[in-house]
């Protein structure tokens, strides 16, 4: 790790200010992604802005949606009775991220900001028609994720919270990469009164994406058979040493079926 300095911000505007006054400042949330990168010397920020003191933790029921603070740990979401009642699939997702240690450090905001193509949360934000609240604006899920590791966030923008719409029914099915246990394919299916949203993570070369064929099939017939009727294409899916695009396409179908029938 190269030496750097850490600044503890008291609120998000102070955090933004700190970014502005550094050359290449980086927000430090749970550090589960950032710190290993620094230890490998694969980044050399001149300043880390710790946002753990910015009051960005917590879960709120907003009626038709649930709002979760950016600094809320995965473990807290997994254990929240509010989330368990309103969107049990979201609590399940959080409880299946990494391991106990990671869940007790890693945060919702960090996961969403990082937009790792194999991360779990982005699929929930997409499928639950979420909104990312930053210090500047509200960004809808469909506009937020811009391709692998890319988001609509600007350099001086901090995620404060994410809102998730309450579905009638939802389920997240993850086929973990056996080594990292990130999603090799993760499918989040959410059924709303006006249709079904299906978001796929772990599989797309451009990161998380909505699967329109599956969405329309399930919107008209919410059943496993409807999924079987969709030919999941491998175009645009990742191929790596763990899984080919073909195999990922198969998993998308399988995980969707399981999500629908669970």
């Amino acid at each position: 790790m190269y030496s750097t300095k850490i600044v503890k911000a008291e609120n998000s505007s102070a955090a933004v200010q700190a970014i502005g006054s550094s050359k290449e400042g980086k927000i430090l949330a749970g550090g589960m992604t950032l710190i290993p990168t620094l230890k490998q010397r694969l980044a050399n920020p001149d300043c880390l802005i710790d946002i753990s003191g910015c009051g960005l933790e917590g879960v709120e029921d907003k009626g038709s949606s649930v709002r979760i603070g950016a600094m809320t740990k995965h473990a807290a979401v997994a254990e929240s009775s509010l989330v368990a009642k309103a969107i049990p699939a979201l609590a399940d997702l959080a409880g299946g991220i990494g391991d106990r240690q990671v869940r007790n450090r890693g945060t919702l905001g960090g996961s969403v900001a990082n937009n790792d193509p194999a991360a779990c949360y982005p699929s929930a934000v997409m499928a639950l028609d979420g909104t990312v609240h930053t210090n500047k604006r509200d960004i809808s899920a469909d506009d937020f994720f811009k391709g692998m590791f890319e988001t609509a966030l600007e350099e001086d923008e901090v995620i404060e919270a994410v809102s998730f719409k309450k579905p009638e029914k939802a389920c997240y099915m993850k086929f973990p990469n056996p080594a990292s246990r990130y999603a090799m394919v993760g499918v989040f299916v959410a059924k709303f009164s006006d249709g079904v949203r299906v978001a796929v993570t772990g599989a797309g070369e451009e990161g998380v994406f909505r699967h329109s064929d599956l969405e329309s099939a399930l919107s008209s017939n919410f059943s496993e058979e409807a999924v079987s009727g969709v030919e999941v294409s491998s175009d645009g899916l990742m191929s790596d040493i763990h899984a080919s695009a073909d195999y990922r396409a198969n998993l998308i179908g399988e995980m969707t079926k399981r999500a629908v029938s669970s």
Binding site: P178, A179, S180, Y182, I241, H242
Partner: peptide, 11 residues
């Protein structure tokens, strides 16, 4: 060596 960490080498 493409499997040089536990992200890719599965114990």
């Amino acid at each position: 060596l493409l499997t040089a960490s536990y992200m890719d080498y599965c114990m």
